[in-house]
Amino acid sequence: MAITLKINGQDRQVDAAEGTPLLWVLRDHLKMNGTRFGCGVAQCGACTVHVDGLPVRACITPHDALEGAEITTIEGKQGAVADAVRAAWVASDVPQCGYCQSGQIMAAVALLEENTDPSDEDIDTAMSGNICRCATYMSIRRAIKDAAQTL
C-alpha cells in the first residue's frame, strides 16, 4: 500500500510491502544510497538516519511506522552542526573506505546537537553503536572534538 513519508523535508510516495525496513525503502525504492547496509540487525550503525531528530537504525525500523515523522538521511542533513562535522571530517581526512561514515556522521551530528562539549565517555556512549572496520575511531574522536570547538 502506498504511503507518504517525509524525507529530507520532501513528501515521498512509497509503495513497499508492509513492514519493509526504512533502509531498503531508501536504497531500493528511492535510490537514496547514502544510508548503508552493514548488518541488518541494529549492530553496526551503518544505516543510521534521524527520525524527528534522533538517531535511528533504518535496518530494523519498518517504514510504515514512520508516517508523519521527519526522516533525515545523510544526503539531506544540514545545519550548523552538520556543517561543522563535515568540515572536521574533511579537514582531518577521517574516512578510509568511507562505507561506515554516513552512519558515523549521522551519529556524531546527533551527539553534538545534544551536547556541544562531549567528553570521551560521551563520545564512547554515542558512537559505540557504529562499527568502523577500517578502524577510524581515533580520527572520529578527534574530529568530533574539532567540530565541537567550532560550535
Binding site: K31, N33, E75, R86, W89, V90, P95
Partner: peptide, 27 residues
C-alpha cells in the same frame, strides 16, 4: 595531500558495489 574521495563520502554519495543501479534491475 587531502584525499580526493572524502568530500564525496561526507555527503553520502554512493559509489560502492552495493550502490550500483541499472535500469530494470532486480535484487
Amino acid at each position: 595531500i587531502a584525499s580526493v574521495t572524502v568530500p564525496r563520502i561526507v555527503k553520502g554519495d554512493g559509489a560502492y558495489g552495493m550502490d550500483v543501479e541499472r535500469p530494470g534491475m532486480v535484487y
